[in-house]
């Protein structure tokens, strides 16, 4: 939530230009999550709660190694646990995927949001919710292809992972990165992370019998500020429903694009049309004559 020294490149529900656009040269930041070395220890979950002062909430035990069914408005970072049987040799895999906001380059949440400045994207790519400007409409929930924004039922404001904007703006890495004991989390520029991820995927393909290993950086949302290395990049769904080809829903695009223009033109055109019609034809008849036929009171 802290803007600190960061510049803004996109503002939700904003009429006019974006102040500070193009004023700063900045790298796009990125978090790399290597699912193949995650052991599901939840250190990052705890670090997230610690750094962001999130309250302790009840966990939900469901006979697996997952803390709760999904992220909450006050629990932004969740390791999803899935058992998977490999088709190749029938062996069992425990898949751990750290789930949080993906910090999309083209964020559906921001596109859907009607409130001026409730969602902003910094020039470094971080997508951040500004609760002070949020009106609680929940459009962002509909715009997000990853089911990330969560509503606080009491205050009717939406929350999610900030990629530790406050830390990043001071040159620190996000809290989760710092806590990971296996080194499966990395943080840096998008280019560096893609490079690192590509090398790791290659290693998995060539030396670890994961011929489908690859990097998850979905182009449908312009790429993401959080990328994964997956053992099997052809089946992201097995990692707790990671969408294979995420897009901002087409109805959201239609609504915020053509429908908006069509609607505005139709409304203004209709008003002008009626006005001109009145100038041309006027009223059908004068009321005075009806009420007072022949001038009688």
């Amino acid at each position: 939530m802290s803007q600190a020294t960061l510049r803004v490149q996109k503002i939700s529900g904003h009429a006019g230009s974006v102040p500070g656009e193009d004023t700063q040269r900045e790298y796009t930041v990125c978090k790399l999550i290597d699912t193949t070395t995650c052991i599901g220890c939840k250190a990052c979950e705890v670090a997230c709660m610690e750094w962001n002062d999130l309250p302790f909430g009840e966990t939900v035990f469901d006979n697996t190694y997952q803390t709760m069914p999904e992220t909450r408005w006050n629990y932004w970072n969740l390791i999803l646990f899935n058992e998977h049987v490999r088709e190749e040799d029938g062996s069992l895999m425990w898949l751990m995927r750290k789930n949080q906001c993906m910090h999309c380059a083209e964020p559906g949440c921001l596109a859907a949001c009607p409130a001026d400045g409730a969602i902003i994207q910094y020039t470094n790519g971080i997508v951040d919710f500004q609760q002070a400007n949020c009106i609680g409409c929940g459009y962002c929930i509909t715009g997000c292809p990853f089911d990330i924004p969560k509503m606080n039922p009491k205050t009717h404001r939406v929350f999610k992972c900030t990629l530790c904007t406050d830390r990043v703006s001071e040159g620190l890495e996000p809290a989760c990165i710092k806590s990971c004991p296996t080194g499966c989390l990395h943080f840096g520029t998008k280019d560096d992370m893609l490079d690192l991820a590509g090398k790791r995927a290659k290693q998995l393909r060539e030396h670890s019998h994961f011929p489908n290993a690859g990097v998850y950086d979905p182009p449908g949302v312009g790429g993401t500020g959080v990328i994964y290395v997956l053992h099997d990049a052809t089946k992201p769904e097995i990692y707790g429903g990671l969408p294979k080809d995420p897009h901002v829903p087409w109805t959201v695009k239609l609504w915020k694009g053509p429908l908006k223009w069509l609607g505005n033109v139709a409304m203004v055109g209709g008003l002008i049309g009626l006005f001109v019609h009145y100038l041309r034809y006027g009223p059908k008849a004068r009321e005075e004559e009806d009420i007072n036929p022949g001038g009688k009171p």
């Binding site: 239609l254 429908l259 139709a266 409304m267 209709g270």
Partner: peptide, 19 residues
């Protein structure tokens, strides 16, 4: 997904009627 599209579309239709 359909509600965010149909709600404003129906509202627009009523704006035409209303005017």
């Amino acid at each position: 997904y359909i509600s965010v599209l149909i709600h404003p579309a129906a509202a627009l239709f009523t704006v035409g009627l209303f005017l």
